[in-house]
Design a protein around this nucleic acid. Structure first.
Lengths: 210, 210
DNA sequence: AAAATTATATTAACATTGTTCACATTAAAC
DNA sequence: GTTTAATGTGAACAATGTTAATATAATTTT
């Protein structure tokens, strides 16, 4: 297709990338069809040729956002060339870093409103290493190798995710007014998780490197 | 004031209680001025005699919601007739219980959009035992009595709150599909926090009762 | 290559939303 | 009892997401 005055060319893709750029700086709630039509130089209802509704565009954005989130947090967890504890540590830091760098996207993909999209794309029960799956797989690896307590891995996964999700949310949702201690908090929380949930030998001094 | 056909009487209070009842069953985003005017039998713009805007009504609802949250979680923390560990445990359970019973309210009072209201009402730095303050005070009590590690209490407070907030959010935002294990998860998380962050003597067996 | 068909975009119109303004009615103050 | 302040109404606005009828371009068929 060639771009003309009338037909746009690849409007669908452009809507998607505009939405994706938008949440880099603004809340998804502020995105309107007018913004989208103005940015593409089309009419207000052009979007309906490519998406069933505004929500459908947002849902497509979430799918892409979940993919980016997975890429930012999962691969390191499954990289067997590193010690497992280091992988957990690095993934923890990258999780929080992702939330800090993409607060609007993080809220969008992990908020209540579009929980059904998360379930469609990937569930914690999936085996395809997406999102929680990677964490769960890494936990099970740790159980087998003996450095993690042998509990229900599903429960351990949730506990750890809850911790990361909670701290990330506090940070990006305006709870904390001390910007400088994010790193410390993340380290403390990780040490906590190791001491509490992870290490079978609680007397052992915890050490890890990034 | 007496109720007449024209003047309502205590319309402001009624708006507030309608809003408060509304979020018991529905998301705050679904609340419209039409719903409010229909429920009170007034006109669509009557609310503007009592609130500067729809948002102002919601903000007043948040103030009331924060108060209820504090009452559900703080008193037990400061009840010196119980062992401190038991208080932490009970407060943890009540925190999660509150979120489960009032998911829409919880999201409203602890969401990003109205973070400024939280700050107005009570900050973690406050000394008046509201919200985080109570937790922080209890933590400092534990440090003095020797059962908690002597770290920066501000950091410890955030770590614990983040854990509770994270687990509560996962539960009410549709992450977990296994309804039955909430209690177990809460207990596991609490044990984690004790083992990881709290107890100075890590060899000691943790025990608490509710 | 011309005609038919499909895909894509436009314009106009709707109902709903939060909000404002001029006006009406009641309650309170003097 | 008159004035003043408080409270409620109704009409009107701009902005929102959405739909339907129409127009234009691209693709397929003949």
């Amino acid at each position: 297709m060639q771009k003309t005055d009338y037909h746009h060319g690849n409007l669908k893709q452009e809507f998607l990338s505009i939405a994706f750029n938008f949440i880099k700086t603004e809340e998804i709630e502020k995105l309107t069809l007018k913004i989208l039509s103005d940015a593409t130089g089309t009419s207000r209802s052009a979007i309906y040729r490519h998406f069933k509704s505004k929500d459908a565009l947002i849902e497509a954005t979430i799918v892409e956002g979940l993919e980016q989130f997975d890429q930012a947090t999962s691969p390191i967890l499954l990289d067997k060339s590193r010690p497992l504890v280091d992988r957990f540590y690095l993934s923890t830091k990258q999780y929080i870093e992702f939330a800090k760098n993409n607060p609007n996207l993080y809220r969008l993909i992990f908020g209540k409103k579009y929980a059904h999209i998360r379930e469609e794309v990937s569930s914690i029960k999936d085996e395809n290493c997406s999102g929680f799956s990677a964490l769960k797989i890494a936990i099970e690896e740790g159980q087998k190798s003996g450095i993690l307590k042998k509990e229900e891995s599903y429960k351990q996964t949730i506990i750890i995710w809850a911790s990361l999700h909670g701290l990330s949310s506090l940070i990006i949702d305006g709870f904390l007014d001390v910007e400088e201690i994010y790193e410390e908090l993340a380290d403390d929380m990780f040490t906590n998780l190791l001491a509490g949930e992870f290490y079978r030998n609680k007397h052992k001094k915890i050490s890890f490197k990034n």
